[in-house]
Amino acid sequence: MVGYAMRRILGLVAVWFIAVLLTFIAVQFVPGDPILALLSDRSGDPVLEARLRAEYGLDRALWVQFLDYLGNIANGTFGLSFRFAGTPVIDVIAGGLTISPVLALVSIAIAVPLGVSLGVFVAIRQNTWADTLVILILVAGISVPNFAMAAFLVYLFSIKLGLVPVAGWGGADQLILPVTILVIPPTAYIARLTRTYMLEVLQQDYIRTARAKGVRERLVIYRHALRNTLVPLLTTIGIIFGGLLSGTFVVETIFNIPGLGRMAIESIFARDYPVTMSIVLLFTVFYSLINLIIDLLYAALDPRIRLDAGES
């Protein structure tokens, strides 16, 4: 187990390095010149342009720029922002550093129990009207785009009913709508998976045996069936988490939440490469850490997996 964990962590560090390299390369291809965006209407001034270019080290060889970038990651500044001239990236993103991950974590903490409950609810009612209805609602929950859902909920709850703020960040009430939007798709996804796994497990011999032995139905479902449903469910949490992180891009933009997702979109439009790169990197690191934890948990729960690392 410890050996497996060590191997995974080493692999992770290698992946991070390549991710740094990839984002760095990717950003070189972004159309538009950040210095020109910085100068905006004054890009007719070649002296100023040259001066800024030198200041940002953009006049140097690419590999030197890459080493600079690695150094800046190492010292924790992540380089200088283009949009906020002279400001270290870390100062630009510091305010939003925890927001997107917190949003994602809160959402998953709600989505998992909610989704599992719903999934069990419909699984034990297979082929009844309730089953069909809930499934349709779940499919709709996955199908309606989060930005359309957001518009609708804002209209209903903030404008018409005045129950929650339209946008903003800081109060618990400002969390409700964004989290609701974020929670719906993973809840629906988990519920559908739970239903599928549950139905599968309920066919298994040991469940039949338990039933034949006269174990009470409730016990059969919660002690035996549900437990065996949760383990395969665990492997999908990573994917769901990635979806949630991506979802923060849209939700933060719509609800005016000063998190990393909104900053990433803004920085793309402002050609603020260093900020874009750093946020993508942070998301990647965070995402891969979550996946590592899940894989380790899974390995602990199901020893067979260690034989075939890299799989899962």
Binding site: V154, S158, I159, G162, P165, V166, A167, G168, T253, I254, F255, N256, P258, R262, E266
Partner: peptide, 16 residues
């Protein structure tokens, strides 16, 4: 700081 003009108007409507 409200990037979306639409959100700004909604916040105005809601008294924010």
């Amino acid at each position: 700081v409200v990037p979306s003009g639409d959100t700004a108007v909604s916040m105005y409507e809601a008294g924010e």
